[in-house]
């Protein structure tokens, strides 16, 4: 009896929308079609996330599997290292630079393309094209472009323009403003700026595409109404169009953040961990710890921290999207 009562409670909560429980061929076929990928996802994504989390709590730090419980020892060990502390600083700085760069450049390009120009689709393709290149290729090419030698790459242009001491780009050991905290210096490692430039070059086309879709969704009538009310094009953009792009911005930020936290190939090919770990990323650290150092549990701990960071960004977004959908459905 008690069992029944418990079972019944959820459906008796009045605020929840009543699920439609009618069985139909349509539904059955949908389930049949989805089942294989759901099973695959369940095993290969969610199963391994849990497995990884479990490994991070064990003592498996050599080739010999050791599943004895270690508590949070691996997390503590990882957080205590200079390298991981640098990683945290770097990933925050890199993500910020990367997202700001992508959003501003993407918005700028989208607005330009939205001016009903000729060959619009050609320009769109050109701006999106870098996304099709692998991050490794981008890293190698930009390492050449931003060559730290004073007589190579973009530094040739800077010198021709009169810059006597062109930047050393990704080799710069400087961290600005360099505040001491724990073992590391907190600030913006200048070497990371070079990496961010390459990443922005690759991904700003994506932000452009999202913004372009947003711009196209702004109803023509509203713009016209604003113009009739006497708004200039500057005012029209910032007061009428831009506020309508908020959801585009949120989407772009979430997806770019996920891409940024996962960045590996670009840094691996372009700079490696860099001088004093100034361009190191949690993913690089994870790879070295796991496969060079064979400290599987510590590697799993880094992976789990990354996963939680990513979840911290994407889960609130997913929840807000679902809520919005529900509200729309009810309306």
């Amino acid at each position: 009896m008690i069992k029944h009562a418990i079972k019944d409670t959820p459906s008796s909560i009045p605020t929840l929308p009543q699920p439609r429980r009618r069985w139909s061929w349509d539904k059955a076929s949908a389930i049949l079609v989805l089942a294989p990928s759901l099973v695959a996802l369940g095993i290969f994504v969610y199963g391994f996330i849990f497995w990884n989390g479990y490994i991070s709590l064990t003592n498996w730090n050599s080739y010999i599997p050791n599943f004895s419980y270690a508590g949070l020892a691996n997390y503590l060990a990882v957080f205590r290292t200079f390298r991981f502390q640098s990683d945290i600083r770097n990933i925050i700085v890199f993500t910020t630079l990367f997202i700001l760069g992508c959003l501003s450049l993407g918005l700028f390009l989208a607005v330009l393309i939205d001016q009903k120009i000729r060959f619009e689709s050609l320009f769109r393709s050109i701006f999106i094209f870098p996304m099709a290149i692998s991050f490794v290729a981008t890293g190698v090419i930009w390492a050449w472009v931003l060559n730290p030698q004073p007589n190579a790459g973009v530094n040739l242009i800077l010198r021709a323009l009169g810059d006597k001491h062109p930047p050393t780009w990704f080799l710069s050991p400087l961290i600005i403003p360099s505040l001491g905290w724990g073992q590391i210096k907190v600030g913006i490692p200048l070497a990371l700026v070079a990496v961010a430039i390459a990443a922005v070059w690759q991904m700003s086309g994506f932000a452009m595409a999202i913004y372009l879709a947003g711009l196209r969704a702004v109803p023509e009538e509203i713009k016209e109404a604003a113009r009739i009310d006497g708004a200039g094009s500057w005012r029209l953009f910032w007061s009428v169009i831009y506020p309508q792009l908020a959801s585009s911005t949120v989407t772009a930020v979430i997806i770019l953040t996920a891409a940024s936290l996962k960045v590996f190939g670009l840094v691996y090919a372009m700079t490696g961990p860099g001088q004093d770990f100034s361009t190191d990323m949690p993913t690089l650290n994870m790879f070295d710890t796991t496969f060079q150092g064979s400290q599987f549990a510590q590697g799993a701990a880094i992976a789990t921290i990354l996963f939680l960071l990513m979840a911290a960004f994407s889960v609130p977004y997913l929840i807000s999207v679902l809520r919005r959908e529900n509200r729309e459905e009810e309306m």
Binding site: N61, S62, T81, F82, R83, P173, P273, Q275, D276, F277, D288, T289, Q292, G293, S294, Q295
Partner: peptide, 19 residues
């Protein structure tokens, strides 16, 4: 020497090189 020690030395070396 074992891979764990080697990785730790490489990491410490990266710091020694700059400080």
């Amino acid at each position: 020497v074992n891979p764990g020690f080697t990785t730790a030395v490489n990491n410490a070396m990266d710091i020694l090189l700059s400080n």
